[in-house]
Design a protein around this nucleic acid. Sequence first.
DNA 1: CGACATTTTGAGAAGGGTCAACGAAAGTGG
DNA 2: CCACTTTCGTTGACCCTTCTCAAAATGTCG
Lengths: 268, 268
Amino acid sequence: MKLEAAFGLSRYMSQPDCNDSMSGSRRGEGSLTRIKCQGCAVRTASLCSEVSDECANAIGRAFHRRRVPAGQVIYSSDQKNKIFAVVISGVVKLTNVRPDGRQQIVGLQFPAEFVGRPYSGTSNLLAEAASNLELCCFSGDAFEAIMRRYPELEGALLKRTLDSLDNAREWMFMLGRKTAHERVASLIYMIAERLTHPGNRKEPMETCRFESPLSRTEMADCLGLRLETVSRQLALLKAKGVLASSRNRTFDVRSMSELRRWSESPVE
Amino acid sequence: MKLEAAFGLSRYMSQPDCNDSMSGSRRGEGSLTRIKCQGCAVRTASLCSEVSDECANAIGRAFHRRRVPAGQVIYSSDQKNKIFAVVISGVVKLTNVRPDGRQQIVGLQFPAEFVGRPYSGTSNLLAEAASNLELCCFSGDAFEAIMRRYPELEGALLKRTLDSLDNAREWMFMLGRKTAHERVASLIYMIAERLTHPGNRKEPMETCRFESPLSRTEMADCLGLRLETVSRQLALLKAKGVLASSRNRTFDVRSMSELRRWSESPVE
DNA sequence: CGACATTTTGAGAAGGGTCAACGAAAGTGG
DNA sequence: CCACTTTCGTTGACCCTTCTCAAAATGTCG
């Protein structure tokens, strides 16, 4: 998986792109965007839903869809040309990697979320496909041109960035103050919530089942733990009956409320 | 680039407060803002410097200055009316506090930085004065009205929020992956850099001295450690000659480059 | 089936937490 | 001015959670 990442963007660039054929058209049509974006799974939840028709049209003219296989790099710190994207399906992981090999996953971007770092050439982070992805991509130039022309887009981005910041700060509490047991429970709860309730419904289901986008190593990199510790804590959660023992990446949550409880109480 | 970087904090502190008396005046004058904000120590580095004159005028009409003694709460999760502010001098700490008593400091806001959470009633965080403060305050209503009227302000806020997010993610790496020794070195390095180089000049001085805005307990809450551990690691840094042994909150950095080295190497 | 990657499990070590005592500085009140 | 208290920081001893290293088990894919 790491080996694929070494291929860099070349592989990624050659993905078949089902929308390229439409990029020739020009201005004056709300209908084009409607057609291009009509089937979009995240349409009502993404950035695009918050801006004016005119801006949405500009966006509709600029994007192209891409499929990205799990493990592939979307952007890295030493990349020349910027890229922006909205996640249509799958999960993107943002990793802070150091020369000495240590790494920390500092963000997971789920469907409808935005990926990319405006206003800065150096992102310092590595963005990789945690699972197979569908992305709605924009070249740096195109996106920034739209941003300059439609400041409202900055407002929409601001809302999302503030949410990301809230999430990051919540995660900081986990990294600084929670026990290993709480951390693992927190992560599974968070992923379960996000994967099974893409819109933020009030009450999550009491039981659910999903495929984790993360390996044990990746879970450990999220949680500031070693993979052995993650494995042991998962065994504990299974022993408690909070998780059913399903194999590998399939998680079978038997009680979301219990899981939530374990994600917040330090005592055994 | 940023010439005001040469100002120390002492300079910030000693600015005369020429603005309190002027909040009655009304519209139509670019000169009013110029007068009200003229002596502002962070003027060229804060939000206000990035927006149009017209927007800056609106801001100039809406703010009021406030002095806040160390320890005072600026806003908390259960607060009814929102507040926004730009830090003029001093440091604001943002803390994630839990019912069980555990807490994690998730942000430090230095002069010229923005404090407040637009677009959300519930901030979930506690904002407190870590040191004595001078703030340039806005009521929630006033600020949001200006934001609605001048979308460019959202753009300026977006840039700052993205920077905060980068900082938060850098901090997440520290919390997840650094040793106690690296953490303490990182914190001191960061505070030294920010306090003694308000603008981001390239190379920090090799030695410096400053008053920490944080107690040992607060340092521990920043770092995800216990205060005893912080104390021991400080003793170690003193033994290595990176810090001179000065009392309590006065830090005397003998070698910023060494400090930086210790903040990134896990060994010893 | 065989080669390889991923996950689980085990045993021992250690980093940091916990508890406790002590010291230094600052405020209080006589 | 000096006891007294209070707050804050330091230091020590011990212990527990998590890390480290190692090996076995399980899963995956040709």
